[in-house]
Design a protein around this nucleic acid. Structure first.
Length: 259
DNA sequence: ATGGTAGAAACTCTA
C-alpha cells in the first residue's frame, strides 16, 4: 500500500501534474491540501477516469483538503469534531484497514499574531481529538502540511529560522504533544540525514539553491511502524512547469488488508 | 527591514 501527501496549492492549476503523478507512482491513497476550491469545482471526473474516487472537503479561495483512493472509504470525517472552524483543514477516512487523517495545519503567519494563536489552538484541538477518540487502537496515520519543521536537520538555515514561524518552540511543543500520543515521523525511520526538504519559497529561487524546510509529514502509530518499508520526498514534482511550492511525500506500507 | 513569486479573486489577501 502506497500513500502520498501533497500540498498542491490549487488543484485546478495542478490537475495535469496530479494526473501525471498518479501514473508515475500508482499510489493507493493521495492526501491533498490547499485545493483552493469548493467541492463542486473539484475535478472529480478526471480522477475517476484515472481510477480514483474523491472524498472532498473544499473551501472557496483558501485551504481545502481532499483524499483520492483506489478503494472505497469508510467513516468520513470533515473537520475536528466539536471544534468550530470556518476553514476546511481536516479530512479523515478509513481505507484499506488504515485510519488516515489528512491535515492542512494553519500557517501561523507571524509569531505573536492572531493567526499564530489560531495555529496553536488548532493543534491543541487536533491532539485532543486524536487522543480522546480511541483512533490509536488500530492502524492509524496522520499526514499533510504541518507547517512545522521538527528540528535543525529540517531547516536550511536553522539559526536564521529559530524562533520564527514554522520553526518556533511553541510549535515544537505542540507537535511533541501530538507525537507523544505514540506517533513517529515515518520519514525519519528511513532517513536520518538533514538537507531533505518538502517546501521551498517561490521567491528568490530557493528550490534551486536547495534552501527549503521539511514541513510535510507522515506520523504513524505503533502497528504501522514495522509495516513502513520506505519514505521518500518526490522533489521531481518541484521542478518543471508550474510546480507547487511543496513536493509530495510518499510512504509504502507492507501487509495489512489492502485489496 | 524589505522584497522577492504564486494563486484566487477582484484591485488585496494568504502563503
Amino acid at each position: 500500500m502506497k500513500i502520498a501527501t501533497w500540498n498542491v496549492n490549487s488543484i485546478r492549476v495542478r490537475l495535469d501534474r496530479a494526473l501525471a503523478f498518479l501514473k508515475r507512482h500508482e499510489p493507493d491513497v493521495v492526501c491533498l491540501q490547499e485545493i483552493k476550491v469548493v467541492d463542486e469545482g473539484f475535478p472529480e471526473e478526471a480522477f475517476r477516469e484515472a481510477g480514483y474516487q474523491s472524498t472532498i472537503f473544499g473551501q472557496k479561495t483558501y485551504n481545502g483538503v481532499a483524499i483520492l483512493t483506489r478503494n472505497p472509504v469508510q467513516s468520513v470525517q470533515r473537520g475536528i469534531p466539536g471544534f468550530e472552524d470556518p476553514q476546511s483543514r481536516v479530512l479523515a477516512v478509513t481505507v484499506d484497514g488504515v485510519r488516515v487523517v489528512n491535515v492542512y495545519v494553519p500557517n501561523g503567519s507571524q509569531v505573536g499574531s492572531e493567526k499564530f494563536d489560531y495555529k496553536l489552538r488548532w493543534l491543541e484541538q487536533l491532539t485532543q481529538w486524536i487522543d480522546e477518540d480511541g483512533l490509536l487502537e488500530t492502524p492509524f496515520l496522520i499526514c499533510g502540511d504541518f507547517n512545522i519543521a521538527p528540528d535543525d536537520r529540517d531547516v536550511y538555515a536553522p539559526d536564521e529560522w529559530r524562533g520564527r514561524v514554522l520553526f518556533h518552540p511553541d510549535e515544537h511543543a505542540a507537535l511533541a504533544k501530538l507525537q507523544g500520543l505514540g506517533l513517529v515521523d515515518a520519514f525519519r525511520l528511513h532517513q536520518e540525514e538533514g538537507d531533505h526538504y518538502t517546501w521551498w519559497d517561490f521567491r528568490g529561487g530557493m528550490f534551486w539553491k536547495n534552501k527549503g524546510l521539511r514541513i510535510d509529514h507522515f506520523l504513524i502509530n505503533e502497528p504501522l511502524i514495522p509495516r513502513c518499508k520506505s519514505a521518500e520526498i518526490d522533489t521531481w514534482e518541484r521542478k518543471g512547469k508550474q510546480p507547487s511550492d511543496h513536493a509530495p511525500v510518499l510512504i509504502t506500507l507492507e501487509g495489512g488488508d489492502s485489496a
